[in-house]
Design a protein around this nucleic acid. Structure first.
Length: 271
DNA sequence: AGTGCGGCCTGTCCGC
DNA sequence: TGCGGACAGGCCGCAC
């Protein structure tokens, strides 16, 4: 389940192989992803040059001389770089083939990922134009988050996972950030004091930044490997630890469902 | 406009 | 040991 750090690690891993290279074609074997890969995508990208490899939220953006490829890893997607084409395996849904022979191969068992094409500015695209600030940018600060939450009486956990509020905070890191900030996941978003919001902003930034830093060290070489940055060995204090002792106070962690998602917290440390 | 939920998909795990 | 079913989860798109 790629969270923002995994997506950023992927971006950094594939960028050196793609930048300034010419796309020869895209070979699609399975087009039925989250949305169908457009049938004419190959005509669009053929012979274009990659001018930028960027990220917005959990979307990867490949800028070319004619438009942008918008990619998403969904739940189980991964890219790897091959020096030359080798026989695809199960779930290897498409290859982006460069004119120098390098192949960017996409694998995604659950097919929740996406590959789309747009000729408008990607930030104007329907999938991106509603997105809130990047959690690691200067736009995401205490004042911003506090203001954004004032109209929301939904639980804080649901709110920070809403990409209109801030992008890239998935279930794992939402649990961890709330534990770190000492905030109960069910607390109404508009009933949290500014100092506590400040702690939450700091927690979100710290956790994501640390995971990205570890991704950078974990991932030596995107070429040849399975392309999966895998799970960072980052210590998870609550996620996946239901009924185990709190790392801070030793009382057993509780698990509830919120919006059909696993939510783990310490009822002593989080209020 | 904010909120809640269905649906997409398949590997993994659990209970019988 | 085999098998069916629940579960996991990002996030859009729709209903309320």
């Amino acid at each position: 389940m790629p969270e923002l750090p995994e997506v950023e690690t992927t971006r950094r891993g594939i960028e050196p192989f793609l930048l300034h290279q010419t796309i020869q074609c895209i070979q699609v074997r399975e087009s039925r992803l989250r949305w169908p890969i457009p049938k004419d995508i190959n005509n669009k990208v053929k012979n274009t040059q990659v001018t930028a490899v960027t990220r917005r939220g959990k979307y990867l953006l490949l800028g070319t001389t004619k438009g942008h490829l918008i990619a998403h890893l969904g739940m189980s997607g991964s890219y790897r770089v091959l020096e030359k084409a080798i026989p695809p395996e199960k779930h290897d849904h498409f290859d982006l083939i460069l004119s120098n022979g390098t192949v960017l191969r996409y694998r995604d068992p659950r097919k929740f990922g996406a590959l789309l094409w747009t000729e408008e500015q990607p930030e104007s695209h329907k999938l991106l134009n509603h997105l809130g600030p990047e959690p690691l940018s200067d736009d995401f600060d205490t004042n911003y988050l506090y203001q954004a939450l004032q109209k929301r009486k939904a639980p804080i956990k649901v709110s920070i996972m809403d990409s209109k509020v801030v992008v890239g905070v998935g279930n794992i890191y939402a649990n961890e950030a709330l534990f770190s900030a000492g905030i109960h996941p069910k607390r109404a978003a508009n009933r949290i004091s500014k100092p506590r919001i400040e702690a939450l902003v700091a927690a979100i930034r710290a956790i994501l930044a640390s995971a990205i830093a570890q991704g950078g060290t974990t991932l030596r070489d995107f070429s040849g490997s399975d392309g999966n940055p895998g799970y960072f060995k980052q210590t998870l204090h609550v996620y996946g630890r239901a009924d185990l002792p709190c790392t801070q106070c030793s009382s057993p962690l509780k698990e509830i469902r919120m919006g059909n998602r696993s939510t783990v917290y310490c009822s002593e440390c989080q209020r």
